[in-house]
Write a protein that binds this DNA or RNA. Structure first.
Lengths: 226, 226
DNA sequence: ATAATACTTGAACATGCGTTCGATGTCAAG
DNA sequence: CTTGACATCGAACGCATGTTCAAGTATTAT
């Protein structure tokens, strides 16, 4: 029988358990029992589940209320069953370069200070959230995209896009960042402002076009007293 | 010993149990046991708790997974510990009248179809959410408020506002609804569009000005494939 | 090889916790 | 007063569930 040795961080079994707990919690609105974890992760003995749970607790991935039935919960990024915590990687403004995104890396953090919580119901059901990030709009340069100073733009990392999607791009030509609707045409790309009264930008296909991500959502918090 | 007879709807004991479940869930991230409910609600017997729980289940206030430890959850508005479900009361467009709001009534619903879930962390911590509602913007009439067709506007019911707050008002004079920044001046109200290039509307204080609510948040979901 | 560590098993145990039931108390209607 | 619906209690029952342990198997290091 094969064994899964953890080289660094979590073994795949740890990960599977963690995922299962989250999925179960989301589905049933209460945590799973040790035995349920075992059954769904191919572990026949409750003690083995307990064994892994202990490790996950030591490494800080879960918390447990000992002696309490189903008294366990995942901590950190995916702590909530109903929201995703999306990290705010930085500002976005016409003159500012867009933050560098390492592919394959989750930008997730559990730091509430630099993140926005987004209800899962507002995103596609299958969205895992690992390649989501957010930018805070600075200045008025995005008004043509109907986006205001202070708005939070939630994006999904991408290097290409389909027609009609709104993308964040770095225009090397003009040395600026912008949010535009993306259209691929015969031999060029058309970047269309959301505001229909404004003219599109055309980029030849041989020019560099750095798509950083697709806009998924825009959130504007309005100041309200009382 | 006094008894609490339920005349209509929930008795105070039902309410107390309901509140306790929610509070407990928010605090511990897992539901309470029957005995814990009893201890914290001044009920000495588990069967009595079970008795009330059965009623709450029949009336649809909670759901139970029988035989499963701590397998209970509140349904409806406050189902989630991390999000608030805000009902979408209807469309908002220049030509359409704004929906009537009964003061003191919670517009909350558990119907997911006509509601948006908003992360509690995006709202003031004390926000209970009882006078929140949302409107779906139809058409381009709100572009001067940087609000697009299809956007969801989350609002808080109000009949008056402070300077600088964005309000939804019904302009009886022009027979239309609009979203504007509100300023009270000497003998008039100034309704300022978000777009600085557009001119404000002035309303004399003796003219009717129907403020329906303050804008708390704007949510724009952008179409993204894949 | 050998030892040490990591992983797995199955079973037994103790108790947390939902369920059920008979008895009792309270109140309104007949 | 009697009756019946509602509310409360306490205790017992039994399964669900976390805990523990002794022993076995794999993987890596020495």
């Amino acid at each position: 029988m094969m064994m899964v040795r953890k080289s660094k961080g979590l073994g795949e079994r740890h990960q599977k358990i963690l995922d299962f707990i989250q999925e179960y919690q989301r589905k049933h609105k209460h945590p799973p029992s040790i035995r349920e974890i075992g059954e769904n992760c191919g572990i026949s003995s409750t003690s083995v589940v307990n064994y892994y749970l202990d490790q996950l607790e030591k490494t800080g991935h879960i918390e447990r209320d000992r002696k309490i039935s189903r008294g366990l919960r995942v901590t950190g990024v995916n702590a909530s069953a109903d929201t995703l915590r999306v990290p705010i990687l930085g500002p976005i403004a016409a003159g500012l370069p867009l933050p560098e995104l390492q592919p394959g890396v989750s930008y997730m953090t559990d730091n509430e200070a630099n993140a926005v919580d987004v209800a899962r119901s507002l995103l596609p059901p299958k969205e895992k959230g690992n390649d989501l990030f957010a930018l805070e709009v600075k200045g008025d340069s995005m008004i043509d995209a109907m986006i205001n100073d202070g708005d939070i733009v939630v994006m999904k990392r991408a290097v290409e896009a389909r027609n009609g999607e709104m993308v964040a791009v770095w225009l090397a030509r003009d040395n600026e960042a912008t949010l535009k609707y993306f259209f691929k045409e015969r031999d060029r790309y058309r970047l269309q402002p959301a505001n229909p009264t404004m003219k599109p930008i055309y980029i030849n296909k041989d020019e560099p076009l750095e798509i950083k991500g697709k806009v998924v959502m825009v959130i504007r918090k309005v100041e309200v007293m009382s």
